[in-house]
Design a protein around this nucleic acid. Structure first.
Lengths: 337, 337
DNA sequence: GTTAGCACTTGGGCATGTCGAGTGCTAAAC
DNA sequence: GTTTAGCACTCGACATGCCCAAGTGCTAAC
């Protein structure tokens, strides 16, 4: 019983099963693939693979299907990332060019990726922790309500309405703005919290309370831009692969809607030597996604933010990985410096 | 055959069917409701109702289920909007208080509404057409790239990066900003387009090109804040009511994702005398939503923006309408002046 | 206008039987 | 030692036939 052939059999099982959604038997295998041995031999190999926990039989006299572990081995050792078709490359290129607004780019990107893969696509907003303060704006909305706007050099804008706790004139507010902006322009968002007290201390005593409130508002903004967000597209694809989620897609939709879950998941995925991160089935520490897999990769300057797809474990990993990687690369290029 | 009793029969059919999801027959009807007549009489009434197209039988020897038209009559003439339970009122109140950031309020609101109704909840961002220009900010990102920020008195912020087409210093940009802001502060967003050319005309000839580009950017921002957005929650509820969407929920998810569809739908729904807007099944001019109903109502100062839910036609309209209305009222109060 | 009674329709559930795919095992062949 | 052929066995998928309960529509009587 040769080891290479066993892997070959696993590969064939994964490919056939992904293609047909039906448990694949020994006979069908020798017919569809020219393995050069008889079905009986394959049966022996399959028994060994089952012994190792790589495949399993849904019931006694059915073919075998890959387990999570089987997919894992397949992804790690067997499959090669398929190149995209020229048509797909063109689609990516044409769809992502001609727009420089961040929201817009990300929106187009997820839609594209979901169409390309027929799965649910997700993309994290780029991290801003190493972004710098570009501009600060205070706008008086009502006697004590101030709209605080924080603009980063990345082009990201965060805003919030806060109650300053004391009446404040336009002039006083402008003065505070100048004070804050003068001290903080160019400060990394990540260090904003440390720098704020010093600024507050320089404010006139009569404005101290307001200055304090504004500082808290700014800190919250810097915080909330580090606390990430994501965009998503293609949830309708889940319905198509209804059959692949035995329990119904409810829990999956819940997970997707609870963005915190997805964001943590994406953040914690480790990339392999190819730069791809793949989590399969129960490897994902979230019950609702026990039948799902996530394929993701980093993008942007330091590859800190992730883009990826979520689909059933029974998925065409090579093609999907190729699409994710290609889209991530184009996205990096567009957002690039 | 009395007309009032026929309506009563329709009411009973709708209520039972919504409750049990099973076609309801004449015998079960007289048992569950004390109608004071025999099943044979009910059969006659049902035949008449079917004649009028208000109910239909899935197959020969099954009970009847309401048609879209039947639901419509039920909603318009028979049902009374149920009052919410005190617990629900409390839930609404406690969940929506303690936050003044628009995004946050809307996010909490949809989540709440989707939980309350067990349906998909959607809410339009408030219209800004009658909002006024509060503040304008230009930030130089790169030699020719300017981030244009438009802040309305409603607290809404819109931003975009534009290419001004010529190199511009910080000082020049500040000058342009003062010029724009001086002329436009307080202008309704809806009239921004008309006012812009005059401002551009006052710019120094050397900055004319940039001023023009900035004006176009501002106009686009005013436009894009009228072009509305929406927030959504509770899509997982669709999976629960899987059975009610015979074809699968795919098309429904597609419609929801294609926000343009939902926004048009919400905008075009007319409210009835109670202030509620209900679209049932095929009344919705979108094939994917043929099995769905939308219950919505306006909120905010002029009730221009809508909040509502989407679910299967087989839904508990009275309770749902009550929840939507209650949430809309609380939301109006919170956003109110 | 209402009721009782009855013949008729029909989908759903159930038991039964058959078929085919697929397995595991053993013994022989290479 | 590995591969192959053969065979008994298992089990789900499918078709068939059957019966039953629910429900209808109609007619005639109240």
């Amino acid at each position: 019983m040769s080891e290479p052939r066993k892997l070959e059999v696993l590969r064939a099982i994964v490919e056939d099963y992904v293609h047909s959604r039906e448990p694949v038997g020994s006979k069908a295998l020798v017919e569809r693939h020219h393995l050069g041995v008889s079905s009986a031999t394959i049966r022996n190999d399959m028994a060994a693979l089952e012994e190792e926990g790589l495949i399993t039989a849904p019931h006694t006299s059915a073919g075998r299907i890959p387990t999570d572990k089987g997919y894992r081995l397949f992804v790690d050792q067997i499959s090669a990332v398929k190149p995209l078709s020229p048509a797909e490359r063109r689609a990516i290129q044409s769809l992502l060019e001609g727009s420089d607004d961040l929201d817009d780019v990300l929106d187009r990107t997820v839609r594209l990726l979901s169409q390309l893969t027929n799965q649910v696509a997700v993309v994290q907003y780029p991290h801003l922790s190493r972004a710098l303060v570009r501009h600060i704006e205070f706008v008086l909305l009502a006697p004590r309500k101030v709209l605080v706007v924080l603009i980063a050099n990345s082009g990201k804008v965060e805003q919030r309405v806060i109650d300053v706790g004391q009446d404040l004139g336009d002039d006083a507010l402008a003065g505070l703005r100048a004070r804050f902006l003068g001290s903080l322009a160019g400060t990394p968002l990540s260090q904003l919290a440390q720098s704020l007290p010093a600024v507050v201390a320089t404010a006139a005593p009569g404005q101290r309370q307001a200055a304090q409130a504004l500082a808290i508002g700014l800190e919250a903004l810097a915080q909330s831009s580090r606390e990430e967000r994501m965009v998503m597209a293609g949830t309708a694809n889940l319905a198509r692969s209804n059959v692949d989620f035995p329990l119904s897609i409810g829990p999956v939709l819940e997970a997707l809607e609870e963005q915190v879950v997805m964001l943590r998941l994406l953040s914690e995925m480790a990339q392999d030597h190819r730069g791809m991160a793949v989590s399969i089935g129960r490897e994902i520490p979230y019950d609702g996604l026990a039948e799902a897999s996530v394929v993701a990769t980093g993008y942007g300057p330091d590859s800190a933010a992730k883009i990826g797809i979520l689909g059933p474990t029974r998925m065409d990993y090579p093609t999907t990985m190729a699409a994710v990687r290609a889209v991530a690369r184009y996205l990096s290029r567009i957002l690039g410096p």
